[in-house]
Write a protein that binds this DNA or RNA. Structure first.
Length: 296
DNA sequence: CGTGTTTGACCAGCGC
DNA sequence: GCGCTGGTCAAACACG
């Protein structure tokens, strides 16, 4: 994304005020001069403010670019680690599948998606590792491919909505619900209903910390294609399907163009958001009023 | 009547 | 072995 700083010099203001009359009395002339100087002052203040905002804009742009650079370097490091771990696995057969007890598998979740639906219905998601207490731990996670792949999806929904429905384009059949010890909200259990042979399971539970967030945990691979695209946010939820990706937890393979496009999408979603633009406009006008000469 | 959901019962893993 | 807990089953129920 290219945050072009605003150019104050490009700002054109029509300084003409009031009706243009050819008649001019000494009194009127002095009043005119007074108004002109007032407006000049105001324009000066506005230009100064605009310059300040432009500088801030530049600073923020730089910050964003630095952040993006850091993000990219972290991504490449992660990719390196993943390659190393897969190489190690291929060397040492001892790391191969060993039956893991059912409950232990839960604490070894591999990757997750954060999904946040914004008011525009745009879906933003970030893939990350949940249980990355140490790099060793995360490496261990990738070593064991015997377990069904597990991914987590966080979906922001209406906190008052008690349904545990996560619309991800797949058909699910609910087969159980349970209240768990660590969370007062019940956990719902779903199986993929699209194909009888498909063994994918999904658990959906509200987050204990923030009940407006639904946590959907997917287990296993779909043995069929996606029957329909995920629905846009209609007030309940919108998610990205798990599309389990072995050893591809980072998206370093994506081109910078795609990365920029994502950032652009986020920015455009912000600017399209009436709440955001209204808040921005009011903040700017407040600033301007603060700097402008007192008006009665 | 068929299909999907609800919910109490049951089973198995785990820690003590 | 026992109790706790998460996961699953299946009968009952609701709905179109």
């Amino acid at each position: 994304m290219d945050f072009k700083p605003l150019d104050a010099s490009s700002l054109c203001l029509d300084l003409s005020v009031g009706p243009r009359s050819s008649s001019s009395s000494p009194l009127r002339e002095s009043h005119k001069e007074e108004t002109k100087s007032l407006i000049k002052e105001e324009v000066g203040a506005l230009r100064a403010e605009l310059n300040r905002v432009s500088e801030e804009n530049e600073r923020l742009t730089e910050m964003l670019q630095t952040m993006y650079a850091n993000y990219r370097s972290l991504q490449s490091k992660m990719a390196e680690l993943m390659t190393e771990s897969s190489e190690k696995r291929s060397v040492s057969p001892s790391a191969s599948a060993s039956p893991v007890k059912k409950r232990k598998s839960e604490s070894l979740e591999t990757n997750s998606n954060i999904v946040a639906d914004n008011p525009n219905g745009m879906i933003n998601f970030v893939r990350y590792h949940t249980e990355t207490t140490s790099s060793c731990d995360s490496l261990k996670q990738f070593k064991d491919d015997s377990r069904p792949k597990i991914s987590k999806v966080y979906v922001r929904t209406d906190a008052t909505d008690s349904s545990l429905i996560v619309k991800d384009g797949y058909q699910w059949r609910k087969y159980g619900q349970k209240v768990t010890r660590d969370n007062p909200c019940p956990r719902a259990y779903f199986r993929c209903a699209f194909a009888p042979a498909c063994q994918v399971k999904k658990k959906v539970q509200r987050s204990a910390e923030d009940q407006s967030i639904l946590v959907a945990t997917y287990e296993g691979d779909h043995t069929h294609g996606q029957p329909s695209r995920p629905e846009k946010n209609n007030g309940t939820a919108a998610i990205v399907p798990p599309t389990p990706t072995k050893k591809k937890a980072c998206r370093s393979d994506e081109s910078p163009e795609i990365q920029w496009r994502l950032v652009e999408q986020m920015a455009s979603s912000l600017t399209k958001d009436p709440t955001f633009t209204a808040a921005l406009a009011s903040a700017i006008s407040d600033k301007m009023l603060d700097h402008s000469p007192s008006r009665s």
